[in-house]
């Protein structure tokens, strides 16, 4: 296994000389190919900043981030845009589906904007839909789907381009528990069957419980890492709760 993502001493400062805010204070970690990694932390801990830096939406102040062997902190704006398009897949909390397009078209759009030949699109959309269990809603518009279905359509859209790394920002945040479970299970399937690499930011311990490994962030530093190892779901979940209570503050959010 080679590592897909490597973060080395990533620092991020906001503000100017008189008033500096340190959002990330030297975070280092790596994610291997086919790994399902969760990032947890309280509000303001820097987890979203970290995700933004990795997803090239934001730039780092110091340190390096290598994705699929390339250092994104050294790239220009133009190559960043194409890098983002070719190597990364995104899943957002609020789905971000186009309301004017059907599920099928929303998924296909990810390929058409990458100028893939139209004849390969159909088969790939069908395959991705199959993988996420949404084959029967492909002809529907977003307003005709449930939240879970919408998020799985967004998942299919992120996955269909075979990105090196899928970044998910609170994907279960807007879902009820049943939909959340279905979504998380389909993520697992992606990792198992398609060897996808997923980095998921969440503050939901239940969602984190599906991951292979969890990074805990506090005050801009990597506070703790928790690998799943041979734990059962229940054991792993209990350990997560333990760490979360140590992180302080966020125990109330665990549901």
């Amino acid at each position: 296994m080679s590592s897909i993502l490597q973060a080395q001493n990533v620092e991020k400062y906001y503000g100017n000389k008189g008033n500096l805010t340190r959002a990330l204070a030297g975070v280092s970690f790596s994610v291997e190919e086919g790994e399902y990694v969760g990032v947890m932390g309280a509000s303001g801990s820097g987890k979203t900043t970290l995700l933004n830096c990795i997803s090239t939406i934001d730039t780092v102040t110091a340190g390096h981030i290598h994705i699929d062997g390339r250092d994104i902190t050294e790239m220009g704006r133009k190559s960043l845009a194409s890098f983002r398009r070719e190597k990364l897949g995104f899943i957002f909390q609020d789905f971000n589906l186009l309301d004017t397009l059907t599920a099928y078209e929303n998924i296909a759009l990810a390929l058409t904007i990458r100028k893939r030949p139209p004849r390969e699109i159909n088969a790939r959309v069908k395959e991705a839909a199959e993988m996420l269990g949404i084959s029967d809603v492909l002809r529907r518009y977003p307003y005709q789907m449930s939240g879970g279905q919408k998020q799985r359509v967004a998942g299919a859209r992120a996955l269909i381009t075979n990105p090196a790394l899928i970044l998910a920002d609170e994907p279960t945040g807007a879902l009820d528990s049943k939909s959340a479970r279905a979504l998380l299970e389909s993520f697992r399937r992606l990792v198992r069957e398609k060897k996808a690499t997923i980095l998921m930011v969440t503050h939901d311990a239940f969602a984190a419980g599906h991951c292979d490994r969890i990074l805990f962030i506090r005050d801009g530093r990597l506070f703790h890492q928790l690998p799943r190892g041979r734990d059962t779901g229940k054991q792993f979940f209990d350990k997560i709760i333990e760490v979360v209570s140590l992180l302080g503050g966020e125990t109330n959010d665990v549901n």
């Binding site: 078209e105 296909a108 100028k115 004849r119």
Partner: peptide, 18 residues
């Protein structure tokens, strides 16, 4: 399909249709 599934054509068309 060659035309429809090209670039943002699908999106533009839906926009106008809407």
């Amino acid at each position: 399909r060659g035309l429809y599934l090209k670039g943002l054509n699908m999106f533009v068309l839906r926009q106008i249709a809407g």
